[in-house]
């Protein structure tokens, strides 16, 4: 994952899953699809990559809008509002997931 922009209220990151990742052998045999929880994980990693002192408290809502091929580049955009982080994950400009996470400060 490459974090391209981070400031107190905005994080932008890019990631392209590796087709050779063994995860795709099991999800699913003959039909590699990026697991939805991986999309959630990308948002979470973008947040804690930019702010390692934060610990995940709650997935308030995670909504998957479209399936994602296993080699498509994803752009993760996260906006912070207090303890809430609102993430949108997009492929080629089209949102594929909307994710709202709540973190606690462990500093």
């Amino acid at each position: 994952m490459r974090i391209e922009q981070t400031d107190p209220d905005l994080i932008v990151a890019r990631i392209r899953p590796d087709l050779a990742d063994p995860v795709f052998a099991g999800h699913y045999p003959g039909f590699p699809l990026l697991p939805g929880v991986h999309i959630f994980e990308f948002v979470h990693r973008a947040v804690v990559g930019a702010a390692p002192h934060l610990a995940l408290d709650e997935v308030v809502c995670c909504r998957f809008l479209l399936p994602v091929d296993c080699d498509e580049e994803l752009v993760v955009t996260v906006r912070r509002d207090g303890d809430l982080h609102s993430g949108v994950v997009a492929v080629a400009g089209t949102p594929v997931a909307e994710i709202l996470l709540r973190y606690r400060n462990e500093e």
């Binding site: 699913y28 045999p29 003959g30 039909f31 699809l33 939805g36 929880v37 995940l56 408290d57 709650e58 997935v59 308030v60 809502c61 995670c62 909504r63 998957f64 399936p67």
Partner: peptide, 19 residues
């Protein structure tokens, strides 16, 4: 057991998941 013939399970939404 086989997504190609039986269909693909997809998660639509999960919410209020606390750890």
């Amino acid at each position: 057991p086989d997504v190609l013939t039986d269909g693909v399970p997809v998660a639509g939404v999960f919410e209020h998941v606390r750890f």
